[in-house]
Amino acid sequence: MSTVLQQSKPTQSKANRTKEIKEGFLAAVPLIIGYLPVAFTFGLIAKQADIDVVNTLSFSALVYAGASQFMGLSMYLAGVSFFQIYIATFILNFRNFVMSLSFNHQFKTLPFWDRVYLSITLTDENFAVTTLGKKNSKTSYSSTYLITLHTIAYITWISGTILGVIFSKLIPKIISESMGISLYAMFIGLLTPAIRTNWRACLIVLVSMLLNFFFSTILTQGWSLILSSILASFLAIGLMRGDSKE
């Protein structure tokens, strides 16, 4: 009898693991749909801007942040120094420190090295999927589920970049340059719901635009973006603090 129970435990564990992998894949489907066109566009533009394949793929593999990659690419093509690009991308991605701390706090029961990997591959999108899903579900997520979700999203981003590089020779440059608007469309899609329901968010966006326009008349593109981002962030801290009290 004990032998039968011992054999059933690994079988049940394997079945649960397979189920968790399947659920992680299904949760990643929206990310696949969203990541592929944006990553494709980045690979396309980077390759047609005469950036070699290794640097293009390294950009996606190491930075792994759509907004930062497009911003860094546009600043590089505009002749901005690497120092300014580093500072600008650091400021833009500083929220990842906060997200990682929040993520590790919510999933502190997971193994340490699993949390390290999940923190490295954490993005705005999979953070939203896991945290919102955790609030709406009483069951806790396993390492297998989360690692599957994060890994598929990461592979999708790299694959989209590779496809963009491959098809860069087949698509006319004028079309690929127009595809860069997909990033702005994504930003608008993210901003619109917040602006429509929160006047403070709308004010922060307008102030950051005006600051960037003003600084761009006296400073380089890189420094104007850095200063406007910092000042707008301080404004957001003050305004959003009042919003939370309400």
Rank of each mutant, 00 (worst) to 15 (best):
M1A: 15
V4N: 12
Q12E: 14
R17H: 07
T18G: 04
I21L: 00
I32A: 05
Y35F: 15
A39T: 07
A39L: 03
F40M: 09
A46Q: 07
Q48S: 06
D52R: 06
V54K: 07
T56Y: 02
Y64I: 05
Q69M: 02
M71F: 14
G72N: 09
Y76K: 08
A78D: 13
F83I: 09
Y86S: 14
I87T: 12
A88F: 13
F90N: 00
L92E: 11
R95K: 14
N96E: 08
N96D: 07
F103K: 02
Q106C: 04
S119N: 06
I120N: 13
I120W: 15
T121G: 10
T121D: 04
D124N: 02
D124V: 02
N126M: 01
N126F: 00
T130S: 15
G133N: 12
T144A: 00
L146S: 10
T148L: 00
L149K: 02
H150P: 03
T151Q: 01
T151N: 03
A153P: 03
L163P: 09
L163R: 09
V165A: 02
S168A: 15
I171Y: 04
I171N: 06
P172H: 07
K173M: 13
K173D: 15
I174P: 00
I175H: 09
Y184M: 04
M186E: 08
T192Y: 09
N198R: 08
A201I: 11
A201M: 11
V205L: 14
L206N: 11
N212T: 03
G222P: 10
A232T: 07
F234A: 09
F234Y: 09
A236I: 04
M240D: 10
G242M: 14
G242S: 11
S244Q: 10
S244E: 12
